[in-house]
Amino acid sequence: MVEAVKRALNRISVEQIKLELLGTAYNSSSTFLGRLDPRMLLIWYLFFAVTPWFVYNRTILLGMFVFMVVTTVLSRVSPYIVFILCLGLVSQIGWMFLLSLFFGGGAESLLPMLTLTLKLSVISLASITVFSSLDPERLSDGLSALGVPDAFAFSLSYGYRILPTLLEEFHQILLSFRLRGQRPLKHGFLYMRTAAYYLRILVLVFYPLMLNTAKRSRTTVEALETRGYTYAVNNPQVKKLRLSYLVMQRRDWLFAAFSAVYVGLLFPLGTVFPNLIY
C-alpha cells in the first residue's frame, strides 16, 4: 500500500494538481445548470441538502439519488471529484460496519447504514452539482441575493481570482526548497523519512508564503480603497444594482417545476412501494 502511495505521489506533480484544481474551479459556466438563476439553484440545493435527513423511505431516497446522478452528469463534474467522494463514503461506512460486526452486530446492521449512505450521497451530489455548476461570480451574487454578508460574497470571488497566483507562488517556493534541499538518501522504514521530508517542506513553504502574501494583501486592500470598495459597502443601492441582472427566466421556472413534480411524484410512489429495493 505504501508502494501504491509512493507511485501515486510520483505521478502526481504539482503542475498536474494545479491544472486539476483550476479545471475544477473554473470550467463550469458552459453547462446547462450553470446558466440557471443562482438564487433558484441555491434554494433547490437547500431543499436536497436538508430533506434527505428526514426521509427514511428508501424508495424516495433512491429516486432522489437517481435525480442527483442525472444532474451530476449534466453538470459535467470532474470524475476525480466524484471518485474522492465515493472513496470517502465507502470508507466511512465500511469501517462503521466492520466495527459494528465486532461489537456483535450482524449483516442486518448494513441496511440502516446503506440508508445513511444513500442520504449522504444525495446531499453530497446535490452540493457538487450546484457548486461546481455555478461560476464564482454567479455564486457570490446568488449568495449575496439570499442575504449572505457581502464580505463573504466578495471573499469568494476574490478567492477565485487569487487562487492561481497563490498556486503559482507556492509552486515556485516549493521548487526553491527542493532545488536547494537534499532528499533523504534512504527512504527509511515505511518510507517514513521520505514522507517526513516532504511534509516538512510542505509546512516550511508557508513561512515565505506568509510573508509574501502579507505584502500582497497590503496592496490589494489599498487598491480596494482606490477602487471604491468601501463606498460600495456603505451603500445598499450598489448591491441592488449589482444584483439587478438576476432574473428568473423560463428555463429556471421549467427546471424548478420539473424538480417539484419529480419529487412530488416520488412521495406517493415511495408510500406505495416502500421496499422497492430492499
Binding site: E137, R161, T219, A223, R227, Y231
Partner: peptide, 27 residues
C-alpha cells in the same frame, strides 16, 4: 491609480468583472 505591482489590484476572477468593479462600486 495603477500600481507598480498592478497584479494585486485586480480583484475579480474575470476581465469583465474586474473592469466593471470600480464603476459598479460607485453605483
Amino acid at each position: 491609480y495603477v500600481y507598480q505591482d498592478f497584479e494585486n489590484q485586480l480583484v475579480r476572477p474575470t476581465v469583465m468583472d474586474d473592469v466593471c468593479f470600480t464603476p459598479l462600486n460607485y453605483g
